[in-house]
Structure formats: structure tokens, C-alpha cells
Amino acid sequence: MEKWKVQTMTIAAFIVVIGAWAAGLVGLIGQGATAALLVVFFPVLCLGMMLWWTLGKGEDDLPFMGY
């Protein structure tokens, strides 16, 4: 996956997560809807934040097949 795609996805996930949390706090959406959005976008945000700098530096490799 290209870096700009990951960064765009991360920013979008960040906006959704913070937006869902804030909307839940002020009562714009229910707690169930907040939870549903977090279930989908929290993992994307976590992976995206961690991949922000590291993605694309290494080449694909064969897995460890034993000795």
C-alpha cells in the first residue's frame, strides 16, 4: 500500500473517531452508534498511526520456513 493512501486513511479515521466520541458526548448520536464507529475505525486509526512512518521502507520477504 502506498504511503499517501495510509496517511489519508489515518486522517479520515482520526476525524471519524474524534467526531464519534465528541458527538456521543454531546448526545448527537447514541452510545451504540459511537461504539459501532469506534469498532470499525479505532483499529484503522491505530494501524494507520503506527504505519505512518514505517510503511514501504522494506521489501517483501519470504516467511520463516524453518532451518
Binding site: 469506534l38 469498532v39 479505532f42 483499529p43 504505519l51 520477504d61
Partner: peptide
């Protein structure tokens, strides 16, 4: 989270990456 990261050549990319999001999502 700061280690160099890629997807192994023999992996099914969608499952390899997607299942991690599933792991976090279901416990959320």
C-alpha cells in the same frame, strides 16, 4: 510500532492485515 514493516511475499495481504483490525475491533 516503530519497526520496519512489510507484508511477506507469500501472504494473503487482505487477510494478513485485515485480521489485525478484526482482532482490535471485536474486543472493542
Amino acid at each position: 510500532s516503530f519497526k520496519e514493516t512489510w507484508v511477506p511475499r507469500t501472504a494473503s495481504t487482505l487477510l494478513y492485515v485485515g485480521i489485525i483490525a478484526v482482532a482490535m475491533g471485536i474486543w472493542t
